[in-house]
Amino acid sequence: MEHPHQKEELVVSTQVLAANAALRLVGHVIAHATANAWRVAVCVVDTQGVTLAAARMDEVAPPILDFAMDKAFTAATMRRTTEAFFERMDNSPSLRLGLANRSRLLVWGGGLPILHRDGIVGAIGVSGARDVEDIECARHALEREGLSFEI
């Protein structure tokens, strides 16, 4: 006898950024920040927002790494840049109020989803410099690996 759900998919498979690629992205961010005399922390996560690789440059305060992790988590789970999420939130008082009660969602610039072959495979978060500099570091790292962040 056929079960009524046999024709449905029971398991979903997703692609995730490889650990070695996550480590290279961290290295690219640190190299770019160093070349520009910026001090940052960086975190690369999988599609669920779980850390694959992270680093905090010398003399960067420990909470800055938490900010980078939260930016990456937000970009991965919300499937958009933290900057785009901020713009959406800025136009919605109810979203702004709701966000105040959610842990880990952070809308400062510097969190980017990581796309490979039109699918999100993770996210990167950079924090510690100005927002535009954090974004520049993250974009630079993705470009070095031939990855994108635009959906």
Rank of each mutant, 00 (worst) to 15 (best):
G27E: 14
G27V: 02
V29P: 03
V29M: 03
V29G: 03
I30M: 10
A31M: 00
H32S: 08
A33W: 04
A33H: 00
T34F: 01
A35Y: 06
A37P: 00
A37W: 01
R39C: 02
R39V: 00
D46I: 07
Q48N: 12
V50F: 13
T51I: 13
T51Y: 00
A53W: 01
A54G: 01
A54H: 07
D58I: 01
V60N: 03
P63M: 08
I64Y: 02
F67P: 00
A68E: 04
D70F: 04
A72W: 05
T74K: 06
A75Y: 04
A76R: 04
A76S: 11
A76P: 03
R79N: 10
R79M: 11
R80C: 12
T81I: 05
E83P: 00
A84N: 10
F85T: 06
F86R: 14
R88D: 14
M89W: 06
P93W: 06
P93I: 06
P93C: 07
L95Q: 10
L97M: 13
G98H: 08
R102Q: 15
R104S: 10
L105F: 15
L105H: 08
V107G: 06
W108C: 10
G109V: 06
A123Y: 05
S127G: 04
S127N: 04
G128Y: 09
G128S: 09
